[in-house]
């Protein structure tokens, strides 16, 4: 081998191993995402959620029949226990009013997703504000701040002490029967969970050395909260939000099942469908199985992704 090719090779090696000036570091979020990609649980969860979201978004445009059209009313006689199961033109069969179950499932997906996302958002935003205020007061507010935190937290404890469904039913009872009520009721139930979680996480970060370091640098308190404490306290909250989507869907279904949901029969929703199917469960169990399985699979998808995210973001697992 000639000297020239040898130096070329060394040169090439040096180029390959050198860190580029422009190379950017991998933030923890990026690393968590990398870990997430290699987790089977996360992939299964993400696929389920993706399919669900696609169905929820485009489903209503792909329905073979209108979800409210009682086209086959003449074939279904609930009083005599006569129902129509799956068949060529109606893949999931008909419901008790002779409506196409498949179309209703597709349209219902959108309602279910809407309820889940909006109610979780309500809980997240309100919980974030309350918990963030409480956590900031406790970590950097001194003696007065600790008192503020104490008062807020006792209030949150009171909310937590109420059984969640009872709380939701109370809210729904006060506000009347509508889809908005369901979303708010389910959201209110989540508020104390998010508030407690964020505050606890902020308290844990509040004593960290880097917060002390920021203080000794002379960084303003407000900025310490927004740029140091909160970004480091977010990961459990985000995981909880994903997991909450699952419970929100289930709770919304429960409220609908109890008859507190959307009274408008024109808009099918999985929880309402499940509630209606209950009356005919002896003769037509499949009418309940479709929405139930839909709810279970969706909740499973969010739970799987949430759990995988928890693992990916857990600092103890970080190498």
């Amino acid at each position: 081998m000639s000297v020239a090719t040898k130096t070329d090779k060394i040169q090439r090696l040096a180029e390959l191993t050198a860190t580029k000036e422009t190379s950017t570091g991998a933030s923890l979020w990026r690393e968590a995402f990398r870990r997430l990609k290699s987790s089977k649980m996360a992939i299964i969860g993400a696929v389920i959620i993706a399919v669900f979201v696609v169905i929820a978004v485009v489903g209503p445009y792909l329905t073979p029949y209108a979800p409210t059209a009682q086209t086959w009313r003449g074939e279904v006689f609930p009083n005599q226990g006569k129902f129509v199961g799956p068949r060529g033109e109606n893949w999931f069969g008909l419901d008790h009013l002779g409506r196409d179950m498949f179309s209703r499932m597709l349209v219902g997906a959108r309602q279910t997703l809407l309820v889940g996302v909006v109610s979780t958002l309500i809980g997240l935003v309100a919980g974030f504000l309350i918990g963030g205020l409480s956590g900031a007061a406790a970590t950097l507010g001194g003696e007065a701040g600790k008192r503020v935190d104490s008062v807020i937290m006792r209030f949150i404890d009171m909310m937590l002490a109420l059984p969640s469904l009872l709380l939701a039913v109370s809210v729904a009872a006060v506000m009347g029967q509508s889809l908005t009520t369901v979303m708010i009721a389910v959201g209110v139930v989540q508020v104390p969970v998010f508030a407690r979680l964020l505050r606890g996480s902020m308290l844990a970060q509040g004593g960290a050395d880097y917060v002390l370091a920021a203080q000794s640098l002379g960084v303003r308190k407000r900025r310490i909260v927004t740029s140091q404490i909160v970004p480091n306290s977010l990961s459990p909250v985000i995981v909880q939000a994903t997991l909450s989507l699952a419970t929100a869907i289930i709770e919304a279904a429960a409220l609908s099942y109890l008859g507190l949901g959307n009274p408008d029969p024109a808009i099918p929703e999985w929880g309402v469908m499940l509630a209606q199917a209950q009356r005919f469960f002896d003769n037509a169990p499949m009418m309940a199985v479709y929405p139930a399985v839909g709810i279970i699979i969706t909740a499973l998808g969010f739970t799987l992704l949430g759990e995988a995210m928890r693992e990916a973001l857990d600092p103890k697992l970080r190498g």
């Binding site: 570091g25 979020w29 880097y210 140091q228 480091n232």
Partner: peptide
């Protein structure tokens, strides 16, 4: 511990 893990240098 004294460096914020979410901030770059």
């Amino acid at each position: 511990g004294s460096l914020n893990p979410r901030q770059n240098i």
